[in-house]
Design a protein around this nucleic acid. Structure first.
Lengths: 212, 212
DNA sequence: CGTTGCATTGAGGAAAATCAAGTTGAGTGG
DNA sequence: CCACTCAACTTGATTTTCCTCAATGCAACG
């Protein structure tokens, strides 16, 4: 992963709300998040919009653009952030002489596909509360990996963005938060989330029908 | 693409209903469909299952397994089929000496990601009828590319499998078919589908609210 | 201190799931 | 060849879930 340093040409700061890239513009670089967080979203002809992912430190954006050499989504900073530009042509070139780099890159792309399949499963077969539980546990997991608390963190995105990602309306997200709080599984104070009972939250992910 | 011939070691026949690979088994090869069609599906701990994709001639399976070197889904033949085994290690090896092959491979993986984002959009923001219209048009498109009729084809999968892919119950799929038939947009005779009005079917995809 | 954006909550309605019959059609065996 | 079986499909009635619309709360900011 550190080999990526050879490929990384320059860093770029990006303020909350700014676009990192826009749908339809020419693709040349991937972006690795160094600090902060971003969301990607796709826009349909008829105005419908959907958030397709949230990205934190260390995660890679732009993989979708390789196929057409045009970005297929918008990437927007959720807070003041910093990214590394990874020129894709250069990455491919260097890959030729460093097989392990190429292999790692393939794994990263593959992981993105697996991740998307997980979201498809969520969108296709889970109820609102299960979706939110899954989402919170996923975030929690990713915070832990980065050395933050698994059970106490601040959301960087709005209810509407969460809803868009989970295929729900913002009111439904809000209600699901309230319900989990009423059951004492989590504490919600606006964007500040505390998970009180990780196990019961995990149960929520599974089969809501069996739980009380 | 023909370069792939160098990598392809052997063909494999697989009968309707048979597994091409199973979740959890060791990954070594990708599979290119030569004839027939397959579905992939993921199984959750609690028994929930979801179809994550349908694959036709020329399409590539197994990309999700690269990340963990273990297949993350089941692949099952929808009809008697034939696939080529593409040993992944060999593909990576050859890529090193044929940059264009590597580049093509990256595009294929990227296209899979874009495709998944499309499904996420469908699952997250479309109503039943819109989902089915989108699905039929996608199939139609893929048949055309392969030299078959765009407006007259046979489904290889059951209503339940379609529903699982689209995040709907089989009854809902059936009703959506019936509705599109009542509106004279398509003809349905069990698995035999005829599209009478491609334009109105496309309209269905978009904003159902505006249509009658 | 009003404005603005985000969040919560409630009431009512629409969409899809669930439950429950029936129908059809292909394959099987008498 | 016909009855039987079984799986897939269709259709209707009811229930659940979520969306929509609307009102209100609340904190940040100029």
């Amino acid at each position: 992963m550190e080999i990526l340093g050879d490929v990384v040409s320059n860093k770029r700061k990006i303020q909350r709300g700014d676009y990192l890239h826009r749908t339809g513009t020419r693709f040349q670089t991937l972006f690795a998040v160094r600090r902060g967080s971003l969301k990607t979203s796709v826009l349909e002809e008829d105005g419908r919009q959907q958030v397709t992912g949230f990205y934190m430190t260390g995660e890679l954006l732009g993989l979708d653009a390789i196929s057409t050499e045009i970005y297929t989504c918008d990437a927007i900073a959720l807070e003041d952030s910093e990214v590394c530009e990874v020129p894709f042509a250069k990455l491919e070139e260097i890959s030729l002489s460093i097989p392990s780099l190429m292999h790692q890159f393939h794994k990263i792309m593959s992981r993105e596909i697996v991740r998307d399949h997980g979201v498809m499963l969520l969108l296709g077969s889970m109820k609102a509360e299960e979706r939110l539980a899954t989402f919170l546990l996923n975030l929690s997991q990713r915070f832990v990996i980065r050395g933050y608390s698994a059970s106490d963190f601040n959301l960087r995105m709005t209810r509407e963005e969460i809803g868009s990602y989970l295929g729900l309306k913002l009111e439904t997200v809000s209600r699901a938060f309230s319900k989990l709080q009423d059951e004492n599984i989590i504490n919600v104070d606006n964007k500040h989330i505390q998970i009180n009972d990780m196990d019961r939250l995990r149960l929520k992910m599974g089969h809501s029908s069996c739980a009380a």
